[in-house]
Computed example of a mutant assay.
Amino acid sequence: MDLHKRYKKKVLNNTNTLREKETLELQWYFENVTLKTMPSVSHIQITDPDEYTITETTKYCDVILEDITNNDKKALDEKNMYTKISENIDVGCYIYFDSSFWLVIFKEHKTINDKKHFIVRRCNQFVNYKYKGEVYKIPVSIENLTMYSDGLADGVNISTEDAKRQIWYGNNPITRLLKVGTRVMLTHNTVFRITHINDFEFVGNETGSDGIIKALVLQTGILKKDDLENNIAYNDNSEIAQEDENLEIIGSDRIYVGSYKDYNINKSSILFELEDTPYAKLENINDNTCRVIISSNSNCIGKSITLIAKNNNEVVDRKKILIIS
């Protein structure tokens, strides 16, 4: 054995550099000592990227949750969260802690890769969104933007309500159904319409998650079809379509280079295909869900691919997907 190999085995513990050795030691200490001895360790449920909410099958993780010193009402209660490097967590995921849902809103890019550091924000409301007959309960964090006005817009003869709110929620296949113009009910007697969607400011960049969305909503009128009792606002896509021709592929229209996205369609026995492309490959997960995996080659950035859904060998929908960096 030459001198260099002896040095790596004895001093570096078979790592390549001293920095790598120390980083691995810090990772080991965090996972085997800190996570087992710190009083602030919690065993909680955390969603995977693109998992829209917490269910019985959501994974459990050991994490450290610490209060932020200068917390106030404006921050709506935010906390630092530390996890193992190996945990599949990113911006836009949800956690369940202290009988509340919390949204992961920020990830710190650490110079020493010994653990992951996030900031989580408590969700203070739910949006019940009905899509094609099924109701999805989406945890959200709401900010009141009507702070220095009475929330009324004065016209020539009448005054109309124009209260504004900002809603934070994870970017996933369900919440991406909420478009500009979608109506949401935040209480049992007030309905708001989405007027702007910010899905580019807080973006996940590690596992295919799209981060968080901040939607601006404006108060609007109540319709007869609004379900005030169950807190569900009516939209054009609330009810089940009468014909299969209205089927559409659900999923993001953007994928990061070197990552993947899952797509599905609200019907069984669907065959997915990609138009001839060297930039991506396809994996079928079940009879109505597929995974599109993008090449790590940077030459494909800015290129578009087309996902096709077929039923009984007939095309029911096409979706154009942009590859981004």
Score class of each variant (00 low, 15 high):
H4Y: 14
R6C: 10
Y7M: 12
Y7W: 12
Y7H: 06
K9G: 09
L12K: 10
N13Y: 01
N13G: 05
E20N: 00
T23I: 14
F30W: 05
E31S: 11
N32W: 09
V33A: 03
P39N: 08
Q45I: 07
D48Y: 15
T53S: 12
I54W: 01
T57I: 14
C61W: 11
C61Y: 15
L65V: 15
E66I: 03
K73M: 03
E78N: 09
N80W: 13
K84A: 08
K84S: 15
I89N: 01
C93H: 03
S100R: 01
K107Y: 04
K107A: 11
E108T: 04
T111L: 13
I112Q: 10
D114W: 08
H117T: 04
Q125H: 12
Y131T: 01
K132F: 13
E134V: 15
V135F: 04
I142T: 00
T146G: 03
A153L: 11
G155C: 07
G155V: 10
V156T: 14
V156A: 11
D162G: 06
G170Q: 01
I174E: 05
I174C: 01
T175P: 02
R176N: 05
R176C: 06
V180R: 08
V180S: 05
G181V: 07
T182H: 01
R183K: 15
M185T: 04
T190C: 06
V191N: 01
R193K: 12
T195P: 03
N198E: 11
D199W: 11
E201T: 13
N205S: 10
N205T: 12
L216S: 13
L218W: 05
L218T: 14
T220D: 09
L223W: 15
K225C: 00
D227L: 03
N230S: 14
N231I: 02
I232R: 08
A233P: 07
Y234L: 02
D236F: 06
E239Q: 11
A241Q: 08
A241Y: 08
Q242A: 03
E245F: 09
N246D: 15
D253E: 14
S259A: 12
Y263M: 10
S269M: 10
S269Q: 14
S269H: 12
D276P: 11
A280P: 03
K281Q: 13
N288C: 07
N288D: 02
T289H: 05
V292N: 04
S298I: 08
N299T: 08
C300N: 02
I301K: 12
I301P: 08
G302L: 04
K303N: 14
L307E: 07
N312K: 10
V315T: 15
V316R: 04
I321A: 05
L322W: 08
L322Y: 14
S325V: 04
